[in-house]
Design a protein around this nucleic acid. Structure first.
Length: 565
RNA sequence: GCGCCUGUAGCUCAGUGGAUAGAGCAACUGCCUUCUAAGCAGUGGGCCGCAGGUUCAAUUCCUGCCAGGCGCGCCA
């Protein structure tokens, strides 16, 4: 579609005394598809030409010559509306998709450019809660989208494997675990003692000091502390791996906070050497008052480091190791200030990492009665949600398609797809109210709806057997059901670009819903198999094209595309 | 108190400086002897939070206010 818009802009530009780029930028979609494919408002010309917009549009319509490109150019209330030649459009878009197949949207825009994406990053010894779903699926989808644009993507899981909570955990383990080797349900146990610790600490504040002391020992390399730490990390990772397997997500690097431990002192030193630090109440800080922010703390009074120190070290490490064009942090919006501070400090250091750092923030998962909290034991395990959804998918399969092969696998794909798509459907910035009924809904704008549509398309292609999807008779595809679908398919590359530019997978999930809806309308109204050969072939070509776009879109969103369900 | 984010149909959410603001869910109603009814089609439902301002044109941009969320030095 973009190609045609550019051609129209090229030809209209001289008439409007604008550059083709300017004309392209003016184009909009008419509110009613019957009015055309492209609308150009003429209001802005009124002042220059000293004429009423409708008169200008009339004149342009009379002068515009777009033979072989547009079938209709007309003025309507101050707009110049252009209807593209439908056979040309249908032929061009569909043959383009069928030729390039899965790589229709692939560009080399990102060739030789790297991008580091930090996402998921669960906290060791804490359950993989529903709250981690967002960063995990958004990060995964963005990774795939940027790869589609040719970027060299590095997926980093920045595990929360360091910090004072390990001191608390050691104390909790000694008090409440009775020497449990953490073989059976390790995270469940760690979670339980962590909650118990916080309850106990309310009555006995001295536990907090004990915890701090243990963390200090850990930082100083104490063997006993390290032994506990290793145990906690090991058993936690095993649990997380199960969730990542369900979601079909992999990382290029597990580099937790502990990885940056040796880099912390040099990092603080570097910042001090640049004369950016001050000592305030015994702590080392970077004053950010001139930038309207609270100071960034690098060292506590006791000399130990903080979250910001580790993120600064990590950013410098990533910059120097990967030389990326961008560094994304897919982290909740409650950390906006933190990342603004880190970015500001990097900029004060005149490090390129500063401008490369992008905080891809998102809203929280919330219960109707308030926010979730691991400490108070108020959370929902992601694995439970996924399993419940899979169970439900299995039930629906038993009821609707009991003959299906690989029922277990399909139930897994659909159940997980429902959860993942449900999270990617909405703009990432909004808070999400957790609601079992909604998250387990498989009707309407959902993952299963998209998967079902894809399976339907596959089914038609299967049943068509040897019949070739051939495009000799494009005029079949210019009806009110096929043509809008084709035009939509033609938007795919721009949709991917926009999703990347905005770091927003929901751009793609919304699009794929439109494609699914378009296809279902077409499917319902236009019979494919059993039609006259040229008609069937043309329609099969559209089914094939749709199937490819759906499959690719689902891949980019991180959901499976079963061929039967 | 200060800062950031959000406010659109009963609910969950799209959307755009411009022509009649759109989906899904829920409710009601049609459509399976024809390619998967996890579908398609129809009906009802809206001071686009409130008040100003910029503009030929504001739900969209700016300011103020209201409501909700999040954050604000030794947690991450």
């Amino acid at each position: 579609m973009e190609k045609f818009k550019l051609q129209v802009a090229e030809r209209l530009a001289p008439l409007m005394q604008k550059t083709p780029q300017e004309v392209r930028a003016l184009m909009e979609a008419p509110p009613n598809p019957a009015w055309g494919d492209i609308a150009i408002p003429c209001f802005f010309l009124a002042k220059v030409l000293r004429k009423a917009p409708p008169a200008i549009a009339d004149e342009l319509a009379a002068k515009a010559e777009l033979p072989g490109l547009a079938s209709k150019v007309e003025a309507m209330g101050g707009y110049l509306n252009v209807t593209l030649d439908s056979i040309l459009v249908a032929k061009d878009i569909l043959s383009g998709i069928l030729e390039t197949g899965a790589s229709y949207a692939y560009t080399n825009a990102g060739a030789d450019k790297g991008i580091v994406i930090d996402f998921s990053s669960p906290n060791i010894a804490k359950p993989f809660g529903i709250g981690h779903l967002r960063t995990t699926v958004i990060g995964n989808s963005l990774s795939r989208i940027f790869k589609e644009l040719g970027y060299n993507v590095v997926r980093v899981n920045h595990l929360g494997d360091w910090g004072t909570q390990f001191g608390k955990l050691i104390v909790a383990y000694q008090l409440f675990a009775n020497g449990d080797p953490l073989i059976y349900d390790p995270i469940g146990t760690l979670y339980r003692i962590y909650v118990e610790y916080h309850k106990e600490a309310e009555a006995r504040p001295e536990l907090e000091d004990e915890a701090r002391a243990w963390f200090k020992r850990l930082e100083d390399g104490d063997a006993e502390a390290k032994r506990y730490w290793n145990l906690f990390v090991e058993v936690s990772l095993k649990d997380y791996k199960r969730v990542y397997d369900l979601l079909d997500i992999e990382f290029d690097a597990y580099m937790g906070e502990s990885f940056y431990e040796p880099l912390l002192n040099p990092t603080v030193q570097e910042i001090e050497d640049k004369g950016l630090t001050q000592v305030s109440d015994g702590a080392v800080i970077v004053d950010l008052e001139p930038y309207g922010m609270p100071p960034c703390l690098l060292r506590k009074t006791d000399g130990s480091t903080l979250y910001a120190t580790r993120d600064l070290a990590a950013a410098l490490y990533r910059e120097r190791t990967y030389r990326p064009e961008q560094m994304l942090y897919v982290v909740g919006q409650e950390q906006t200030l933190h990342f603004k501070q880190v970015k500001q400090v990097l900029e004060l250091m005149q490090e390129p990492a500063g401008e490369k750092l992008v905080h891809v923030s998102f809203g929280l998962f919330r219960f109707p009665e308030g926010r979730m909290s691991t400490r108070r034991g108020k959370t929902i395990f992601l694995e439970d949600v996924l399993n419940k959804s899979i169970e439900m998918a299995a039930e629906i399969i038993n009821q609707k398609n009991p003959e299906l092969d690989d029922r277990e696998q399909v139930a897994r794909q659909v159940g997980v797809g429902a959860i993942v798509f449900g999270d990617l459907k909405n703009g990432r910035i909004k808070d999400v109210a957790f609601d079992w009924e909604e998250i387990l809904n498989f009707d309407g704008e959902t993952g299963p709806y998209v998967q079902y549509t894809h399976a339907r398309a596959c089914s038609v292609l299967r049943k068509a057997g040897g019949s070739v999807a051939n495009l000799s008779n494009e005029s079949v595809l210019t009806d009110e059901f096929a043509l809008p679908l084709i035009k939509l398919l033609g938007e795919f590359p721009q949709v991917i670009e926009r999703a990347a530019l905005q770091y927003e997978p929901s751009v793609l999930s919304r699009y794929v819903l439109d494609v699914a809806q378009g296809f279902n309308r077409f499917y319902h109204n236009c019979r494919i198999i059993g039609q006259e050969v040229s008609v069937m072939q043309a329609r099969l070509a559209l089914v094939k094209g749709t199937q490819q776009i759906l499959e690719r879109s689902m891949y980019l969103l991180g959901i499976a595309a079963p061929e039967k369900m």
